[in-house]
């Protein structure tokens, strides 16, 4: 028995955390938003979500097996499911299936597996897929069904989203803030219900999957910038709460910008990253030609992450106030 003792150096304990635990907790945190989207967009949201998840998992499995020729399949780690979910949440609920499959292929194939798989991709794969679709199918990607059509999918009636109204300066036609908070407005599947996203945020914080730094710094920046513009001219610029509750700010801040692989490693870096995303999104919304800029803002800041990691070092022990 003695010669069977394992020899490995300290620490001899592990806290039990795994890659899967983190991924599945994020997936769990997205469930409230999925339920909300079903309540508002009906079957369409489920069809799109399912198609996106299944095709993302399929592409990850087949690329790992046939292109990279790796023995170990990585689909059980949950990251492909998560990419699929996040991609779907950034799509309208009436999007045709073939577009979703193309988006998944770009997200997993180009966004993730070309770099070697989980942990190596510089850009958020779901956003790579989404932006690819946005520039390839601009019309289909920017018409959103109005809420309340529970059995409709491709045939759903579409209408203007709050962001489009803000862009047109039609502030007086915006739906009530309470409805926007609940998510009863047009938009992408997963982004509409701020309430559901905040429940997910609370879960992620509670499970210590993410820290507050990135989401809070994005939200504060958006609120402050929108607030300044609103104070200057409340007739053409929307109330800052509308900016927070519309479009992808909440989904992006809580679930997309916090993607482990593509966000900075230190608290300081994460705050700078969050502030810059907030700045970029407001610049695009207020002065750009797109009504929404969350995806672009996050992707642009993804590219700066290695620099932020180099600049923002944690305070070493002994450097803190003696």
């Amino acid at each position: 028995m003695e010669n069977k003792l394992i020899l490995s150096t300290s620490p001899h304990l592990h806290n039990g955390d795994t890659v899967e635990r983190n991924m599945y907790n994020v997936i769990l945190a997205l469930i409230p938003a999925l339920i909300a989207s079903f309540l508002f967009f009906g079957v369409g949201s489920l069809v799109v979500t399912l198609a996106s998840v299944v095709s993302c998992v399929f592409f990850e499995w087949s690329i790992t097996k046939y292109l990279l020729k790796r023995d170990r399949s990585t689909i059980s780690d949950g990251s492909a499911v998560l990419t699929g979910l996040l991609l779907a949440f950034n799509l309208p609920s009436n999007l045709p299936l073939y577009i979703i499959v193309i988006g998944s292929l770009v997200a997993i194939g180009v966004g993730k597996m070309t770099f070697g798989g989980l942990g190596n991709n510089p850009f958020n794969p779901a956003l790579v897929g989404r932006v690819f679709l946005l520039v390839s199918f601009p019309a289909k990607m920017t018409t959103w069904p109005v809420t309340g059509q529970l059995t409709a999918y491709a045939d759903a009636v579409t209408g203007a989203t709050p962001l489009a109204l803000i862009k047109q300066g039609a502030i007086d036609q915006l739906p009530p803030l309470g409805q926007m908070f609940l998510g009863n407005t047009g938009g992408c599947i997963g982004e509409v219900s701020v309430l559901a996203l905040l429940i997910g945020f609370a879960w992620l914080l509670h499970k210590k999957v993410i820290t507050w730094h990135i989401p809070v710094s994005i939200m504060v920046t958006v609120f402050v910038l929108a607030g300044v513009m609103w104070l200057i001219n409340p007739e053409t610029y929307a109330n800052p709460l509308y900016h927070l509750c519309s479009g992808g700010v909440m989904l992006g801040a809580i679930f997309m910008a916090t993607d482990y692989v593509t966000s900075p490693m230190t608290g300081k870096g994460q705050i700078i990253y969050g502030i810059c995303i907030g700045l970029l999104v407001m610049v695009i919304r207020l002065f750009g030609s797109y009504p929404e800029g969350m995806s672009f803002a996050i992707l642009i800041m993804n590219s700066v992450v290695p620099l932020l990691d180099n600049w923002c070092k944690p305070k070493r022990f002994g450097e803190v106030g003696k």
Partner: peptide, 26 residues
């Protein structure tokens, strides 16, 4: 069963080691 190390996976850059380090290292 607690003594065997689990299989090593690629770093997912979760930054948990950075926040755990009591010396402020990465």
């Amino acid at each position: 069963q607690e003594a065997v190390r689990a299989e090593e996976r690629p770093c997912i850059r979760c930054a948990k080691c950075v926040s755990a380090c009591p010396m402020g290292l990465e």
